[in-house]
């Protein structure tokens, strides 16, 4: 079975860094490939989104192939929103044959938050069932119990929202994902490190690696937007004030500094196993964030 370079990194005990790559809306891949080239040797894996926020884009599979072709380590994001169980299994087999060895299993956002609001939301499986499907296909069986001519092999991950209220239902689901075979987790963006450290005390009981989600703050408006619109994200007022006091045209710079500082703190105190950076269109500055974090 092909060995996932990312899995080797997970097991190495080093502080991990992954970064999100958002494919374009359209067939011009210039900018995405530029981001891939910029980051492929600086991070442990590049995580390619799957119609993020239910907005139709170039596919995650295509983005992962591009990462692979250019020498990077891709993580295939796979949501349950757009494909039924036949299509999901087929794409897992295809990814495996093309050297894509990591998969992140997600439920997927609702159709209603995206740009094709009249589409049919599939959700034939949920994230827990998809994780189990990966493991079953690794054992050489499809979901119907038929033998596969050639199994698959993946380092499989999932997501968790440590700041959701109430938190207990999220914890129960987290544990179901662990039982289903998740090896690593990336979290929704976290900004309150004390609160996150408490979550990690709980998560440390389980044999999984956790990468803290890091969404780059680019302006006061963007931080307020996250607070108002994105469930499970809480940007504390001190950080918003810090961005506001950065001075004209300096908010992005301040955001980079905040992200770098937080990553350094997470690493220094070994709070979690790594970070997952979501720069959302500002991938250009990820090397700067890493430099500020001392990585």
């Amino acid at each position: 079975m092909a060995v996932s370079k990312f899995k080797e990194a997970l097991n190495s005990g080093k502080f991990l860094v992954t970064c999100e790559i958002g494919p374009p809306k359209g067939s011009d891949l210039t900018q995405m490939l530029h981001h891939v080239d910029l980051l492929k040797y600086r991070v442990d894996a590049l995580n390619v989104t799957d119609h993020q926020s239910s907005v139709m884009r170039f596919p995650s599979l295509g983005g992962c192939l591009a990462v692979k072709e250019r020498g990077g380590e891709p993580i295939l994001q796979m949501t349950c929103r757009d494909r039924n169980r036949l299509a999901l299994q087929a794409d897992l087999m295809f990814a495996h044959t093309r050297g894509i060895n990591n998969v992140l299993c997600l439920t997927g956002d609702s159709i209603l938050v995206g740009d094709h609001k009249g589409a049919k939301g599939v959700f034939d499986l949920d994230s827990v069932q998809l994780l189990r499907t990966v493991r079953q296909m690794e054992a050489g069986k499809d979901m119907a119990g038929n033998d596969l001519e050639g199994a698959v092999g993946f380092c499989a991950g999932a997501v968790v929202t440590p700041e959701a209220t109430p938190i207990e239902p999220q914890m129960i689901k987290f544990e179901k994902k662990v039982e289903a075979g998740a090896e690593f987790f990336q979290t929704q963006a976290v900004y309150d490190l004390d609160k996150f450290a408490k979550f990690m005390e709980y998560a440390r009981q389980f044999p999984v690696k956790v990468l803290a989600g890091m969404v780059l703050l680019t302006s006061v408006g963007m931080a307020k937007f996250l607070n108002a619109n994105i469930p499970g994200i809480v940007v504390p007022q001190e950080l918003i004030d810090e961005l506001a006091n950065a001075g004209r045209g300096r908010a992005l710079h301040k955001g980079i500094e905040i992200a770098g500082r937080m990553i350094a703190a997470l690493k220094k105190d070994s709070i979690c196993d790594g970070v997952h950076i979501m720069a959302i269109g500002k991938e250009e500055v990820v090397p700067e964030i890493l430099a500020k974090a001392g990585l």
Binding site: C80, R81, T107, G108, D109, S110, L112, G121, F123, D126, S127, V128, Q129, V159, V160, T161, A164, P169, Q170, I172, K173, K176, Q188, P231, G232
Partner: peptide
């Protein structure tokens, strides 16, 4: 909205 069987989504 997603008809999930194994608990809430992150949304």
């Amino acid at each position: 909205n997603k008809g999930l069987l194994n608990g809430p989504c992150g949304g």
